[in-house]
Structure formats: C-alpha cells, structure tokens
C-alpha cells in the first residue's frame, strides 16, 4: 500500500461533520417513529379492514416495496413543491430538500414496517382474538390491550433490524444534495483532497452504529427465544 494517510482534516471539520450527523439522526428518528406508526396502521388495515380497503393498502405496500428508494426520493422531491404551491396558492413557495427526504423515507419505510407488524400480529394465535371477543372487548380494545402488545414483543427484533436498514438507507439523500453525515464527509474530503480518509472514517462510523443496532436486535431475538422456550 503506497498511500500516506493524513487524518488531520477530521478533527478540524468536526462541527461540520456533527451537523451532517444531526441530519442523519433526524432522518433516522422521524423515519422510524412515523414509519412504524403509519406502518402499523397499514398492517391493521391489511388484516382487519373490508376487502377493497385492505387491497388498497396491499397495493400501497407492494408499490413502495418494488420501487428503489432513490426513485421514491425523486418522486417526492419533484412532486412536493408544486403540490405545496397549489395547496397554499403561493407560487414562490419552495420546500427544503429535508422535507422531501423525510416524506420519502416515511412513505417508503412504512411499507416495510407494515409487513413486519403484519407478521407480528399473525404470530399471535387466533384463539387470543376469540378470547377477547368472548370477554366482550371491542376490536379496537382487543388490538390495543391484547394483540398489539404481544405482537410488538414478537416483532421487536425485526423492527430493530429494519431500523438498521433504514440507517443504511439514509445516505441515499445524497441524490437530492442533502448533506447528511456521508455528504458532510464527502464534502470535507473533496475540499481537503482527503477523500480516502474521510470515506474510511464515515464507513467506520456507520459500521459502529449499525453494529450497535444489530447487536440490539440479536439481544431481543435471544430474549424472545428464551420466552418461547419458557412456554
């Protein structure tokens, strides 16, 4: 290896990198919370709603699962500003790319979370629903107090894994020139002519964060396996 490393750019660029990391964190946090919330709604609709509405939800999920996230980001990026201008009747309004990116992540991730929640609800036996009905609980009450709490425990490992996938997808906002952590690292690398160091540094940071998430998922998995063994 003939390359001479020089890592000094990284500490000097720290504030800029931290700003990038903040964007990554916002994408992750919003994508996860709203994605899980919307995904849960989709899953409940897919399982319990009347057939035409359930099929609509299924169509939504299959659509977003077959299209690359980058393409979804483009769609939202080009669709949102004119839509906003029409709705607000303000021809000069423009939306910052962060809003488009957030919307794209929530829309797409909800489809993935939906499938996990659906499997989780499916993992709670049909007898449990029957038991709630026999006690006179309404369907909403049954979901809220009996089915979803159990489903959540069963699907916790998958949710953690999906959230790691979400983190791995966040750098894709590069395509709409939104400066997340990878974008910040690339910018510093190009400015200082230290691309190699900055990309390696970014890779190590992502590796550490994702490993943490994977480790958590494995922990949850082991715990749920122990609970199964206790049954």
């Amino acid at each position: 290896m003939s390359y001479a490393f020089d890592w000094s750019s990284i500490p000097r660029a720290w504030p800029f990198l931290a700003d990038g990391m903040a964007v990554t964190a916002v994408l992750l946090a919003v994508g996860m919370t709203l994605g899980i919330a919307f995904g849960t709604v989709l899953a409940v609709v897919r399982i319990y709603a009347p057939r035409p509405i359930a099929l609509l939800a299924a169509g939504y999920v299959n659509f977003f699962r077959s299209v690359p996230l980058i393409l979804t980001i483009f769609w939202v990026f080009f669709l949102v500003p004119p839509l906003l201008r029409t709705v607000t009747a303000n021809p000069y309004l423009s939306a910052s790319p962060i809003w488009s990116a957030l919307a794209a992540f929530v829309l797409a991730e909800a489809a993935y979370y939906c499938e996990i929640v659906r499997a989780g609800i499916g993992s709670v036996g049909p007898g449990q629903m029957r038991a709630t009905q026999a006690l006179g609980l309404s369907r909403i009450q049954a979901l809220r107090y009996v089915i979803v709490p159990q489903a959540l425990r069963n699907m916790a490992p998958s949710l953690a894994n999906q959230t790691v996938s979400l983190l791995k997808d966040t750098p894709l906002v590069y395509v709409v020139s939104l400066t997340d952590f990878l974008g910040a690292a690339a910018a510093i690398g190009n400015r200082d002519g230290r691309i190699v160091e900055l990309y390696v540094f970014a890779a190590v940071v992502y590796l550490a964060l994702c490993s943490l998430g994977t480790w958590l998922a494995d922990l949850l998995q082991a715990r749920s396996r122990r609970r199964m063994a206790a049954q």
Binding site: Q128, A131, A134, L135, G136, V146, Q231
Partner: peptide, 17 residues
C-alpha cells in the same frame, strides 16, 4: 351480549403479556 355469556377455551387463551 358476550359480557353476559362467559366462555372458557380448550387452550385457556389467557393473555400471556
């Protein structure tokens, strides 16, 4: 109606959580 008619199942169906 169901609150007035109690039911006991073969597989108990207690809520494990």
């Amino acid at each position: 109606l169901r609150a007035r008619v109690g039911m006991v199942f073969q597989s108990f169906e207690l809520f494990p959580h």
